[in-house]
Design a protein around this nucleic acid. Structure first.
Length: 651
DNA sequence: ATCGTCATTTGT
DNA sequence: CAAATGACGATC
């Protein structure tokens, strides 16, 4: 059996005797209680056997908590593999995988088994040249794996539903994971509309309802599950397909140990279960690009005709050679809203003519709501030239500037150099300004610029799911953009600097992801103004709606620099003495490179080291880190050390 | 938390 | 030299 103790040196099965009275209910997978080192602890029965390797005396199981076999073999194996991948313990992963028991829900018989749907029609998958073949493979139960670049527009939940129906028509189950509750509602609605029997495992269900639905899945009464990241481990019977939407969203990263990411777990799960996979979104991640490069997944992208007709018309606020807009904006700059953006919004709101050289869609001139994407509150203020608003960067290392504590002079976030006699490399001005652009202030300013137009806001604790087709300004932070019933008539992406200026390895990729996600909500050929320079590769990728090539370049660059996903990184943190001891005693593979340790900002007495190793030696590194944790926990050494593989932010 | 093992101390 | 004590490590 597996005991529920997350100490690395106890992360292995223990043998117990089963009393005669428990013999018929003690089935593999059920919850049990045992005396372990004097204490009563919970655990899961992994297996029954007639013999033991153990030399000493065996204890009896204290009791069988419930005969319900909640830990099915597929998940037991997956959880072990995830623990190994992330240098964590099985107990920690099982806490993420299996919901708390609810005895009342367990006694209920559950719903009747649903009958599988017919093979679905391809529908909007027909717009993808490889779409019909992909569905055909699913309906035949073949383990096809797709890196999906979804076409812009509202059809993706329906496409997910069709894929799940295709797998179901082959008698196979599907796990669908989306970032948040609003996406989940869309997918659940599409499944219902497509007559695909399913359960939705939302995070906000009460414990009873959550366990009731989860049990219906475990008991094989439903075989399509949609949910947020906790659904990654849903014990779907005869898994045939895993689906992950918007795999770059940081909500897919589990914040509890051992910090697994839904994409990695689902890819591992599909691989182990010989199931198909559909992973993607409007954007691409470096990790998914890597899976394509390895040959694990094949690209599934829209046809050129579909791309041409469906994508918005993206306009960068500043062209590389075009100073005329910049000159016009000189006055408007103080208001942070370039005249092009205001003009575009005005035309979209009242249904004006589109200044397009291409054939405008008839719908594009119909008035409608305009989406305005603004930076999330609490972003680190980034700095820009006071005159031309080019990002202010360190003269020595090109790092981003910041203002800390009492200093009036900005310093570099990367190398720490003071930017005392800073001069703009673009225009020569010597003053910097902080770009503090909160949603509330932008809303206020836009409201004044468009008297009589309703202003709706979505973000933070107040998130709108949808807005009507009436002309309105819809101000939203990234990830909180409401869906407009008939698509937005236009969009303004105002957070370019704040996003691109973030001191993160993923800044460009993440910026493109947020832009594409917002731009995908517009009508075909609707104008989208992005406040960034047209010459930047990330802006070009948006204009051409080509996240794949952008990301391929990104991955190649990261490989040259020795950044993930070309290498595997581990972050190890804790108090300085414990960390030093850990790093010294850990028998890391010789190829591992230790960076740091350095103090962690904002935490007293905590340091962090990064460990870098070739991607193929990831398993070795994880094993060594787990062994080092085991050594520490066996010696009851004080001061916890946190080990995190693939840390999200490697600055 | 509790138990067993093994080295060390203590009592004859 | 045997019994008592205690440190340590494993934990079924």
């Amino acid at each position: 059996m597996a005991v529920d103790i997350s100490l690395a040196h106890l992360d292995r099965p223990f043998d117990y005797l089963v009393a005669a009275r428990d013999d018929d209910i003690a089935a593999p997978g059920c919850r049990v209680r045992v005396r372990f080192a004097g204490q009563l602890v919970d655990g899961y029965l992994l297996d029954r056997a007639d013999t033991t390797e153990h030399q000493g005396r065996l204890s009896y199981l204290e009791r069988v908590v419930s005969p319900e076999p909640v830990l099915v073999p597929e998940i037991a194996g997956l959880a072990r593999a995830v623990a190994d991948r992330y240098a964590g313990t099985l107990a920690d992963v099982l806490r993420l995988a299996i919901p708390p028991r609810h005895a009342t829900a367990e006694r209920e018989p559950g719903p009747e088994a649903a009958k599988p749907p017919e093979t679905p029609r391809p529908g909007s998958w027909a717009r993808y040249p490889a779409g019909p073949a992909f569905l055909h493979a699913l309906a035949e139960g073949r383990p096809v794996r797709a890196a999906w670049s979804a076409l812009p527009g509202p059809d993706w939940p329906g496409e997910i539903a069709v894929a799940a129906a295709a797998a179901a028509s082959a008698g196979r189950g599907t796990v669908i994971v989306v970032p948040d509750a609003r996406d989940l509602a869309r997918v659940a609605e599409a499944l219902t509309a497509g007559h695909v029997p399913h359960v939705s495992l939302a995070a906000d269900l009460g414990p009873a309802e959550r366990y009731r639905r989860w049990l219906a899945v475990r008991r094989g009464l439903v075989n399509v599950v949609a949910g947020t990241r906790a659904a990654t481990f849903a014990p779907v019977a005869d898994l045939g397909l895993v689906i992950l939407w918007d795999d770059g969203d940081d909500l897919h990263a589990e914040p509890r140990a051992p910090y697994p990411n839904a994409r990695e777990v689902l890819a591992l799960r599909a691989h182990r279960a010989n199931a198909a996979a559909l992973i993607g979104g409007f954007a691409r991640t470096a990790e998914l690009t890597q899976l394509v490069a390895n040959g694990w997944a094949k690209p599934l992208t829209g046809g050129p005709e579909a791309l041409r007709t469906l994508t918005p018309r993206v306009i960068a606020a500043w062209g590389v050679t075009d100073d005329s807009e910049l000159a016009k904006d000189a006055a408007a700059l103080s208001a942070r809203l370039p005249s092009l953006a205001l003009r575009t919004a005005r035309e979209a709101l009242r249904g004006g003519r589109q200044p397009s050289s291409r054939q405008p869609e008839p719908g594009a001139t119909v008035p409608g709501p305009v989406l305005v994407q603004v930076p999330r509150r609490g972003y680190l203020a980034s700095f820009a030239c006071d005159r031309c608003r080019a990002p202010a960067r360190c003269a020595l290392c090109q790092g981003p500037l910041q203002i800390t504590g009492s200093h009036q002079v900005p310093d570099c976030r990367w190398c720490g150099a003071l930017a005392a006699d800073w001069a703009c490399r673009n225009c020569g001005a010597t003053r910097v300004r902080a770009l503090v652009t909160g949603a509330a202030r932008t809303a206020e300013e836009l409201g004044r610029a468009f008297p009589g137009v309703p202003v709706r806001t979505s973000g933070g604790s107040h998130v709108l799911a949808a807005v009507s087709d009436e002309p309105a300004l819809v101000i939203a932070t990234p990830g909180a953009e409401p869906v407009a019933a008939g698509g937005y008539a236009g969009a303004l992406l105002l957070d370019g600097w704040a996003l691109l200026g973030r001191p993160s390895l993923r800044a460009a990729e993440e910026t493109l992801r947020r832009w594409l996600n917002a731009a995908a909500l517009t009508r075909p050929a609707a104008p989208v103004v992005v406040l960034a320079e047209a010459g930047l590769p990330v802006v070009q990728a948006l204009i051409r709606w080509d996240p794949v090539h952008f990301d391929e370049r990104e991955v190649a660059e990261r490989a040259e620099l020795g950044f993930p996903p070309a290498v595997r990184m581990a972050a190890v943190s804790g108090d300085p003495a414990a960390l030093a001891d850990f790093l010294l005693s850990a028998e890391l593979p010789p190829a591992a490179e230790i960076l740091g340790p350095v103090p962690v900002d904002g935490a007293d007495d905590t340091e962090r080291a990064l460990i870098r190793i070739d991607r193929h030696r990831g398993p070795e590194l994880a094993r060594a880190l787990h062994a080092a944790q085991a050594r520490r926990s066996a010696r009851k050494e004080s001061g916890a050390i946190r080990v995190q593989l693939d840390p999200a932010e490697v600055v």
